[in-house]
Amino acid sequence: MTAYLIRRAIMLMVTLLVSSFVVFTGLSIAPGNPLATLAGGRSLPPESIQVLVERYNLDEPFFIRYAMWLGNAVQGDLGLSITLRQDVSDLIASRAGTTIALIIYATVIVLVVGVAFGLLAALRPGLVDSLVVIATAVVVAVPPFVAAIALIGIFAVGLGWFPALGGGSGFWDGIRHLTLPAFALAAAAAATVARVTRTSVRRQLHLEHVQTAVSRGIPYATVVRRHALRNAAIPISTLAGMTVASMIALSAVVERAFGLNGLGAYLVSAALSKDFAVVQGISLVLVTAFVLVNTLVDVGATMLDPRFQLGRRS
């Protein structure tokens, strides 16, 4: 077990290193000259250019720049925003809360709604099952921005139950404001989880060990919970983890659509204003979160299966 965790930790480090390099390189080779952005279209005197070049280390070789950036990033220093002249770390920290709340909310929806509908379909073959299968097939194909528009149209504009824009203030108002964004973000993922839950629970129900439990007179609800769902939790949690990780990236679109002041929305506006320090910083944070969530879920899913410990010896 310890050996496995150490191996996973090393893999995590390597993944993070590679992805940080990709983030840095990607922006370096992107079109547009940072100096031009910094100058804001004006032609600057050579002395000012000199100051900017030094502040952003633009005259250093590429790998040195990467190393310096990474070295600072590891210590929590992501440099200065070009447009706002503020610490990128502070800018990120002030917006991360919204994004984290949105993703946690959406994750809860994915798990509760996804597993509930999947289980319902698995246990009620026939009409209920067909309805769930058809509905999830449709929802899986709906990208978050379309879901956002539909939800705003129905629940904000049409029914007026939820606000269409903004983050709200205070806890309950915040929840109210995050509800539509969270559903927009969670819809496709919840549908995927529902489909996987349906298939894996149904597969388990046909397995011999479930028949043993039934033949021992265990009540069906208990059999479903303690055997079918428990064993199906391994594939379900793996998939749920992947979809939650992917929501980290998709949150940008949803935050934009609902006018939420989160990391994703800020990433989009920073990219539009060519604030490369912010774009790099947010990308690094999002990629790190993605990789971390993925690793955690992977380790968690493995822990759910006691047979995995065999792998330690082989």
């Binding site: 011999e208 479930v210 391994i234």
Partner: peptide
């Protein structure tokens, strides 16, 4: 019932 294949008939994750 004592089943034929205990490997399949006993829940592997419990």
């Amino acid at each position: 019932v004592i089943f034929q294949d205990p490997r399949a008939h006993i829940n592997p994750v419990r």
